[in-house]
Write a protein that binds this DNA or RNA. Structure first.
Lengths: 212, 212
DNA sequence: CGGCGATATTGATTCAGATCAAAGAGATGG
DNA sequence: CCATCTCTTTGATCTGAATCAATATCGCCG
């Protein structure tokens, strides 16, 4: 039933999809590419507050605007729905509302994990966490079946995601490579050589929070 | 209709209300006091990922456990509902689900603001933001109608909320006092002397994100 | 009222990550 | 195929906040 009102929109790398505070005329879901949510301070410091991968959802019923900028990190294709009819649908279909709440709660959990990372982790732990996350989510296995992940962003963008500077990101990538934990030759890919050591370097509970 | 299944629970300062990973038998709303959500790393580093004030909600339909510890920051009174009947209610009453989603989205926005704070703000900006937030939310005006807010937490807890150490928190409080922006004599209260200067010190957009 | 444990302040020093600076390595387009 | 631009790496230095350490103050209980 959504079919009737859907349309596709494309954005090139670097395009701003939505500006903070701008009235929100549509909701959308990411079909292809990566987009980021980010907040910027007056003096230019910026912090990414979320990453949208394919299947992730943009926009919230009941909110006419967003509190952050949404920027295309790579080329992006969105599947858009006009906000009004979409909201009507949500009102009429209870389990759609429920599904959207699930999504919001998942995002909230992710945001909280990120708060721990931003507030308490060291640069090395941040980078390790980031790579481990990529390896888990975007398991694009390499030509020879190895564990190569695509880096969808530049060093600068990674820095903004992790609350670091690009130089520190670069240094920590190099350090993890020197330690034989990861490898890369090209700037757009990482190969995880030693997943156990990588997990160890994230600083997260090895047991995933199980009772000891 | 919720009346039939509600009960009150009390917790003393420092009590853990819920442990991370523990099966969740109830949902609750805070009646009185302050509770915090926090994540702890293996080596003891901890980061608060949320603060629950009266009227805030604990627990999420569809989740059998929480991903963080919930701790009573002050003495706390909760109004609890058994999870199962509560979930049934949510299923049957569409606009309750909608209301819960609103709450989740509000929390998400707050979490994202906090991410900016944790990732990019200086110690002074963090403290200023914290005090400004308190002044805004818990406007307990003082005896003579002045702007005195109650600090519901110790320096150590503030440090865990802001991603700092307690020494830095103490130093920044002293610095803001020396600059004539705030005042305090007792550790449980702050008085905002110069709200404009305080807002300025937060590093936030002065115009609240309006288009310039 | 006095002593003790928890909480806070303040000072001295260290260190992780930021900042400043300079080369390399890809891409892109004429 | 070279020029240019952007992104990345690496090095040197600086600095804000952490860490280490010593008092000081508060609140509580006998």
């Amino acid at each position: 039933m959504l079919e009737g009102m859907k349309s596709y929109k494309k954005f090139a790398t670097g395009d701003t999809i939505l500006w903070r505070g701008e009235p929100l005329s549509f909701v959308a879901s990411v079909v292809d590419g990566v987009a980021s949510l980010s907040k910027t301070m007056e003096d230019g410091r910026t912090q990414m507050v979320g990453l949208l991968l394919p299947s992730d959802f943009i926009g919230r019923p009941g909110r006419a605007q967003v509190e952050f900028d949404v920027v295309a990190t790579t080329d992006v294709v969105l599947c858009c729905f006009d906000r009004k009819p979409f909201e009507r649908l949500v009102d009429e279909t209870p389990h759609v509302a429920q599904r959207l709440m699930e999504l919001a709660l998942d995002e909230l959990d992710a945001a909280r994990d990120w708060m721990l990372l931003l507030g308490r982790k060291t640069a090395r732990e941040k980078i390790a966490t980031f790579i481990e996350m990529l390896a888990r989510r975007s398991q694009t296995s390499g030509p020879n079946g190895s564990r190569i992940s695509v880096l969808p962003m530049t060093r600068d963008q990674i820095a903004n995601y992790l609350g670091l500077t690009l130089e520190t990101v670069s240094r920590q990538f190099s350090a993890l490579k020197k330690d034989g934990i990861i490898d890369f030759s090209d700037r757009k890919h990482v190969e995880v050589i030693d997943l156990v050591a990588l997990r160890d370097a994230t600083g997260d509970d090895s047991d995933g929070g199980m009772i000891v």
